[in-house]
């Protein structure tokens, strides 16, 4: 059975595309046939984060308008043949999206892939609603920031009311919380909302915590999903998240404040 997973947040800039790229690369890395779709029509960016921007010929809107076949539009990842990318269009042709047409593409993808990851645009407009409409599960990406938590709460409301599963009264979308840019030091001193706070406010189960790390920017600069940077804490945290998604019991890491030794305290880190 194939699964459709939407990566969403409401607020922009919290790490949806970074999470989509790493999550999809992680699933593919474990042998699952995976496709990741950019739903941000007009503001395509997933191609850059995945490092395939120069290989885009056809896009999602071309497929929807039947100007190209899925096979023509899908871009195979440079290093992993299990991973494919369906880029968004750069023209502002949002009206191309209808539930029927998107549904047809999703159905076709379901026949060929195990996991279909939908990278949602920010906001609660048409594009975001379309990205979540066919979802079976959702990764709700949240920063430990007041505006991000509130917007995630709004998106949870949309998942519960505006998805196909909600409309048809099927089993509801399974929601998972991903906290990004987490900084244990600042949470401990009470400057930043803690994981417990965020979980309590949003009331959904935590699937991953991605610590604030330079590796994320470095990886997107290079066009490589950060999950492939095995040395970095964020890469490892994304690997853990994929394991948990696949049902493994993996403890949360990178939540402790690093204890500074005596010498480090004197000479600095």
């Amino acid at each position: 059975m194939s699964k459709v997973i939407v990566v969403t947040s409401g607020k922009g800039g919290v790490g949806k595309t970074t999470t989509s790229a790493s999550f999809a690369a992680g699933l593919a890395g474990r042998g699952h046939r995976t496709v990741v779709i950019d739903f941000d029509i007009g503001l395509r960016n997933l191609d850059l984060v995945m490092g395939c921007e120069r290989r885009v010929v056809y896009d999602f809107v071309n497929v929807i308008n039947e100007e190209a076949t899925l096979k023509q539009a899908l871009i195979r990842d440079k290093t992993d043949s299990n991973l494919h990318i369906l880029p968004a269009s750069q023209t502002r042709d949002k009206d191309a999206f209808t539930r029927e047409k998107v549904g047809k593409v999703i159905r076709e993808l379901r026949d060929n892939f195990d996991y279909i990851v939908c990278d949602s645009p920010a906001g609660i407009e048409k594009g975001a609603l379309m990205a979540l409409f066919y979802a079976d599960e959702a990764l709700v990406v949240t920063n430990p920031e007041i505006s991000s938590v509130r917007d995630s709460d709004r998106i949870l409301g949309m998942l519960a009311a505006k998805s196909l599963r909600a409309i048809k009264d099927y089993e509801p979308i399974k929601e998972h919380l991903v906290v990004t840019r987490y900084c244990p030091t600042r949470a401990e001193t009470g400057e930043m909302l803690s994981l417990d706070d965020i979980q309590e406010l949003l009331g959904i189960e935590l699937i991953g915590v991605i610590p604030e790390s330079e590796a994320v920017l470095n990886a997107s600069n290079a066009g490589i999903p950060v999950i492939r940077d095995e040395q970095s804490s964020s890469g490892q945290a994304y690997q853990d998240m994929v394991s948990r998604f696949l049902g493994e019991d993996v403890p949360m890491r990178f939540l402790e404040v690093e204890k500074k030794g005596f010498l480090k305290r004197i000479f600095g880190a």
Partner: peptide
């Protein structure tokens, strides 16, 4: 350091409860 997280949490509780009622 200013421990502002507690204020943030309190404010979120209130505004989110209100938004749930409206929704």
């Amino acid at each position: 350091v200013k421990a502002t997280a507690a204020i943030a949490k309190e404010r979120l509780h209130i505004v989110m409860a209100h938004e749930h009622r409206v929704a």
